[in-house]
Amino acid sequence: MENKTEKDVVLSVKDLRVWFELKKFGFGSSGFVRAVDGVNFDLHNRESIAIVGESGCGKTSLMKTILGLYKPREGSITYLNKNISKFQKSDLKWYSSQVGYVQQDPFDAIAPFMSIRKILEEPLIINGVKNKKEREDRIRNVLDEVRLTPVDDFIEKYPHMLSGGQQQRVVIARAIILQQHLLVADEPVSMLDASVRVEVLRLLEKLQEKYGLAVIYITHDLSTVRYFSERIFVMYAGRLVEKAPVDDLLANPKHPYTIALLTATSEPDAANAKVYKEIPPGEPPSLVHPPPGCRYHERCSKKIEGLCDVKEPSEFDVGNNHLVSCWLYK
């Protein structure tokens, strides 16, 4: 399946909408949080993409839907030409061995009462690796792979005995131990000490290259996307507003929101988080009652009256595989 052309589509997301119902008194609906609201993209074999956007824009919801944890309200997710919403039981089993998930908070992502061996053994047992010796070998290999060495020093340990960076390596090990093809990393380094972030990103980069993984890397820190992403998607209020190859986007941002984001991160020595809040100015829109037209128009300095606040922009190709949803480029 995978060995046609190198740029085969692995994952295809079409007009995806993920809404959360707001419950009133435990029943009855009082509207929806439109966490993901019309997302389209293709992910190719061995390709690595980064999704950036400010907090609450729906990045995690999008990923969890791809991982099968949330059900889409509309649209489809196709993995290797199979719609994951229409999976049968056996397909689900197969899919669970295809995708790996690296979460944000490593300490919460591994069971505190399991030893490292047990943590890594669980996916193997669940996915039918019956031979104990084989499991042990694979656990040792993967620990070696994520550089938790010497392996004997780590395999018996419990999560609380490890540092944050080491815990995250365990999480990464778990996400590749089934020889997964698609890796979803949701802000994998944002909870880590600044000193180990680069190491962990380098590790992900190395694994991606070595195993030819397709990777979706979520971050709100634009300065880290260069490590191993080929394309960047910029997400705003449940939608992807700009998609472009990394260099192109960084050198030549089109969407006013992207430009504002980039200004924030390129401030030489400012603490990112702080500046991030100030620029772009204003609050993201309500996801329950999103504004009509472009969702960014309330904060946009270049908005076109009578167009941007009325009609939703469609995706425009500005060349060089660079897509932007903004009326400025029609």
Binding site: L92, S96, S97, I110, E122, I126, R174, L178
Partner: peptide, 20 residues
């Protein structure tokens, strides 16, 4: 807890999640 979310992703059954 996200460790349970992870378990769902790698295919743990409901029973396994409850008991283990």
């Amino acid at each position: 807890s996200t460790y349970i979310e992870a378990a769902k992703v790698y295919g743990a059954s409901n029973r396994r999640i409850i008991f283990r």
